[in-house]
């Protein structure tokens, strides 16, 4: 822990970063996002199993007023979002001071201790505990027992359903949606200055939480994430109604991989999935 504090303190003192987006623990022991602006602030920075947030979501907010590098504390899953933002030309690698942390899983329910049954879905299929690149690395790497990937099982179950059953399943889920847009706001990849639902001439997506409005919002959100979702599962964590949103985005990620061999957020230079094409893309469905 001292290591992370020391790294950040040094970075702020030596002006390697103008400020550092990290985590702090509040008086109720909740770990939450925090911006350390001075070396003294760095004392408050922390990291633990409870550091669930993907801090890359804050990067888009600062991209236009850069006056020195932005420091950011990232887990390996969060780093994919940073990579993706660089890949999509939203931010430059040179404007960032990346403090990677070795992560050994984060909690699902922040009120409880970390254990096998209290693990985020994304940790159940996490490939890298150590971020692939960084400017500084903190935290010790700890082994942890990976629980079963029950989401993959659910996905396989949905795949086996008939179309009617699937629609019924999703209608029941989307019905819960209250259009608070927490899924959009916590998503590091949702950085549009004006979201499609806010476009009202014409109103492409109904802003009401009707069956129609909820359905088109969720379907278009999932499409805009197709091959762009980096799998931080923040949308599902933020959803107050408990809609399994990552089923959709993860599925689209799997489609992107099976159809095009593409995984977002893994390369700084590779062109994005939708930003490019191949003349040999399949077209058996086109007459």
């Amino acid at each position: 822990m001292n290591e992370l504090k020391q790294i950040c303190k040094d970075a702020l003192t030596e002006k390697k970063a103008r400020f550092i987006i990290g985590y702090k623990e509040d008086k109720n022991k909740r770990v939450k996002p925090f911006i350390a602006k001075t070396p003294e602030d760095a004392e408050k920075l922390t990291f633990s199993h409870h550091a669930v947030n993907n801090l890359a979501v804050y990067l888009s907010r600062f991209k236009n007023n850069i006056d020195g590098k932005i420091g950011i504390v990232v887990k390996s899953c969060d780093l994919k979002a940073v990579t993706a933002l660089i890949q999509e030309n939203q931010i430059k690698r040179d404007d960032l001071f990346i403090i990677g942390v070795n992560c050994s899983g984060v909690v699902l329910d922040v009120a409880k201790e970390f254990n096998k049954d209290n693990t985020q879905i994304k940790c159940k299929y996490c490939q890298a505990k150590t971020p692939p690149y960084y400017d500084a690395l903190a935290e010790e790497s700890k082994e942890f027992e990976m629980p079963d990937d029950d989401q993959a099982e659910l996905m396989a179950k949905i795949d086996k359903m008939t179309a009617e059953e699937r629609l019924e399943f999703w209608n029941a889920e989307f019905e819960k949606c209250i259009k608070c847009y927490a899924c959009r706001q916590v998503c590091p990849m949702c950085y549009c200055e004006k979201c499609i639902v806010e476009k009202s001439e014409p109103q492409w997506i109904d802003s009401s939480s009707t069956s129609r409005g909820n359905f088109s919002w969720n379907i278009i959100r999932a499409f805009h994430q197709a091959g762009r979702c980096i799998g931080c599962h923040e949308c599902e964590r933020a959803c107050p109604m408990g809609i399994p949103l990552t089923l959709l985005t993860r599925k689209m990620g799997m489609v992107a991989f099976s159809e095009f061999g593409y995984r977002h957020g893994t390369s700084l230079t590779e062109p994005t999935l939708i930003g490019t094409y191949s003349t040999s893309d399949k077209e058996d469905f086109i007459k």
Binding site: I158, D159, M161, A163, E164, E165, R166, L167, E168, F169, W170, I219, A222, F223, A226, G227, L248, K251, M252, V255, A256, E259, D281, K282, F285, I286
Partner: peptide, 12 residues
């Protein structure tokens, strides 16, 4: 369209 068709199928 390849992505969109897959999404529609998954939603039913």
């Amino acid at each position: 369209w390849i992505l969109f068709k897959n999404l529609l199928d998954f939603i039913g």
